[in-house]
Simulated assay, not measured.
Amino acid sequence: VFCFAEALIADIQKKITEAFEVFDHECNKTVDVREIGTIIRSLGCCPSESELHDLLAEVEEEEPTGYIRLEKFLPMMTKVLMERRYRPIPEDVLLRAFEVLDVNKCGHLTKEELVKYMTEEGEPFTQEEMEEMLSAAVDPETNTVRYKDYITMMVVDE
């Protein structure tokens, strides 16, 4: 059992390090603090903005430099992944949410509807988050979001 746990932790830490290194442009084991949310999401976690803020507070130095060091990020993120925190919302729940927003029941939302819902309801998206979502979700030919296709693309395989 102990060997299995060690192997699991080693595998998790390898994944975290690889994701971190993608954004370590100076190759000095640091990344810009603004990239941490992207790194965390690339590892299959979906924290809210306030949860992300709490995670950053855990790893930021006493003297914030604007950069996060791998040696601080790795143990915190290992714990998050081991505890399976911030799991993505299941596909069927996402689908039901989009269907509620799709008042005409036509299988898609317009770009304008999506922007309105994501920036005016609940925990509003930032400009950056909205642009990121639109670039992935909106079909440039029809200017709509075919949400069944988008959900399939978003779902993280276990």
Results as ranks from 00 to 15, higher is better:
1 V>L: 13
2 F>S: 14
2 F>Q: 09
4 F>H: 14
5 A>V: 08
5 A>G: 00
10 A>K: 10
11 D>N: 10
15 K>N: 13
15 K>P: 02
15 K>S: 04
16 I>G: 07
17 T>R: 14
18 E>G: 06
19 A>N: 03
20 F>H: 09
21 E>M: 11
26 E>S: 15
28 N>M: 04
30 T>H: 04
31 V>A: 08
35 E>T: 04
39 I>G: 05
41 R>G: 05
43 L>Y: 00
43 L>P: 09
49 E>M: 05
50 S>C: 09
54 D>M: 10
54 D>C: 12
55 L>F: 08
62 E>V: 15
64 P>L: 13
68 I>A: 03
68 I>P: 09
71 E>S: 12
71 E>L: 04
73 F>S: 09
80 V>A: 02
83 E>W: 02
84 R>E: 09
85 R>E: 07
85 R>G: 00
93 V>K: 15
95 L>R: 15
96 R>V: 00
97 A>V: 09
100 V>D: 03
101 L>P: 07
103 V>K: 14
105 K>L: 10
107 G>K: 14
109 L>P: 07
109 L>A: 04
111 K>W: 00
112 E>R: 02
117 Y>L: 03
119 T>F: 01
120 E>D: 04
120 E>V: 00
122 G>H: 05
125 F>W: 05
126 T>C: 05
126 T>L: 01
130 M>P: 05
134 L>R: 00
136 A>P: 07
139 D>K: 04
142 T>G: 06
146 R>I: 03
147 Y>W: 07
148 K>C: 01
149 D>N: 11
149 D>I: 02
150 Y>H: 09
152 T>L: 14
153 M>E: 09
155 V>F: 06
